[in-house]
Design a protein around this nucleic acid. Structure first.
Lengths: 130, 130
DNA sequence: CAGAATCCCGATCGATACTG
DNA sequence: CAGTATCGATCGGGATTCTG
């Protein structure tokens, strides 16, 4: 036993380190897209589904549940006919959204550089193969 | 041909959107850990391996290659005996590191909230099941 | 409309062994 | 030391079907 080995800060390599949990959440492609889809206000399930487009109903449902579990998204059901369900970001998610926006901003500004590097690298590799 | 379909900004849902490429890179758990491991200077292959600990040499090698391809990491080999290879961040990766640091900071500050939300949620679910 | 349950394929990843 | 190659197990995730 003697559990809880040193949860060292800044040591995200240790699976025991709680930071890893958040990193894994960010690492979840769908989770990030869902969070970004919700940043302008509450959205219903199927609308969310259509917005993201590429996501399957299963993954959306699954992603929403895990985000709700982590307190990043809240669910509200209305007893209309048929039933309506809205998802929205929690205050906790607010700060995270800011960072995610920075990532997309960075991506938009530097995607050209990355694509260029990729082409240059691939050209080099191709030359070697020839 | 007629490639490059509308790379709409802010529309990361579209797989054709270049932003997705970066999101996928971030979504790569190992890639993020490798980048963070390199932020204090160049590191040799096996040292990197030992630092991250949980990574297999296959994944490390694979991750490094893709990061190099994207111009985020550069490789330098020295003809010592035995051979020495150093990996370091490129200038391009600099800005990205700043954002990744923000993520780990956010994670460290809010992991408590998330864990608490998770426990509360699980308790509720357990109550339902009973 | 919102979601749960089932089936199932293929990408991912780890362990192992070999090379320069 | 710094990798590559191969194999096998795991599992994420899509398509489909059914319910409240």
């Amino acid at each position: 036993m003697s559990s809880t080995p040193p949860p060292r800060v800044g040591d995200a390599y240790n699976p025991d380190c709680p930071t890893r949990h958040i990193l894994d959440r960010i690492g979840d492609k769908w989770a990030v897209l869902v969070l970004l889809s919700l940043k302008d206000g509450p959205v219903r399930f199927n609308l969310l589904r259509r917005r993201i487009g590429a996501i399957s109903q299963k993954m959306l449902s699954q992603t929403l549940k895990s985000l709700e579990r982590d307190g990043l998204v809240s669910r509200a059901a209305f007893a209309t006919v048929p039933v309506t369900v809205e998802y929205r970001l929690t205050p906790l998610a607010g700060g995270l959204i800011g960072i995610l926006d920075q990532i997309t901003n960075w991506a938009e500004t530097h995607v050209g550089d990355i694509m260029a590097a990729r082409r240059a690298h691939d050209a080099g590799v191709e030359a070697m193969a020839a």
